[in-house]
Design a protein around this nucleic acid. Structure first.
Lengths: 123, 123
DNA sequence: ACCGATATATCTGAAAACGATATATTGTCC
DNA sequence: GGACAATATATCGTTTTCAGATATATCGGT
């Protein structure tokens, strides 16, 4: 069980954020999320792949297959395949929008839980 | 359409937070949420009442009926009824826990979206 | 008398979540 | 060389969640 209940929205935000740092393939994304959250967030296959598919359908990310060849299998068969994803311009816009929306939502929640809230210095 | 996708967790956090300020009845809670969020968060009946029911089942909140009598109807019928909810000790604990969890989750998200994060000064 | 607001509650169709399952390759240890 | 864990992608199917619609009734103002 994941440490936090984190749903669609947040998963999208996290994946788009990761891809903003450069192209990644699915499995690496799931490992990265676990690593960078110190195991507290998990992006399981059943969540990750449908999400990536949805993001691509919306044109937010673009995929490309990589044929990973091992010396061992050189010459035969298909070898392992990786599907790399990169952020599209549209995805970049969506990310900015999601970050903005996340901050706004957070500010509202703060008014309920009585969080002091930081001064709006920059931006 | 609600301005934000805010789901179960957050709704629970908000409701428990509101009840921490004192007892409230359902309809007032929904109005309060809309007011305090400047219309950006909505707790519709289809979400609110099942949530309150679930919170009560878990023993986090305690309900009590109030018979609201108008002069007009004095003496007859049932009159309007309000169901007041107050936070239980268990609910108070859950709220603290949820706030803590919310902050932890937020910190993790910050590492992904590249938020500077405030110094851990107090606490 | 009517209408909009107050007040609580469920129903239901759709969407989302996620563990389980499927399939195949690769690296490592003995 | 054989077994096993890790890498890699993907779907399936059950359960849960969501939120609009619906139901019912009272109250306040005009």
């Amino acid at each position: 069980m994941a440490m936090f209940d984190w749903k669609g929205e947040s998963a999208e935000l996290v994946v788009l954020s990761l891809l903003a740092d450069g192209p990644q393939y699915g499995y690496a994304i799931s490992k990265d999320v676990a690593l960078r959250s110190e195991g507290q967030l998990r992006l399981t296959p059943g969540v990750l792949y449908p999400l990536l598919k949805a993001l691509e359908t919306q044109g937010l990310i673009i995929s490309e297959w990589e044929a990973v060849r091992s010396e061992r299998s050189a010459g035969e068969g298909e070898g392992r395949r990786r599907k790399w994803y990169k952020l599209s311009a549209k995805g970049r816009k969506r990310l900015d929008q999601r970050i903005h929306s996340h901050r706004a939502f957070r500010r509202i929640i703060d008014t309920f839980i009585g969080e002091p809230g930081r001064e709006e210095t920059s931006r």
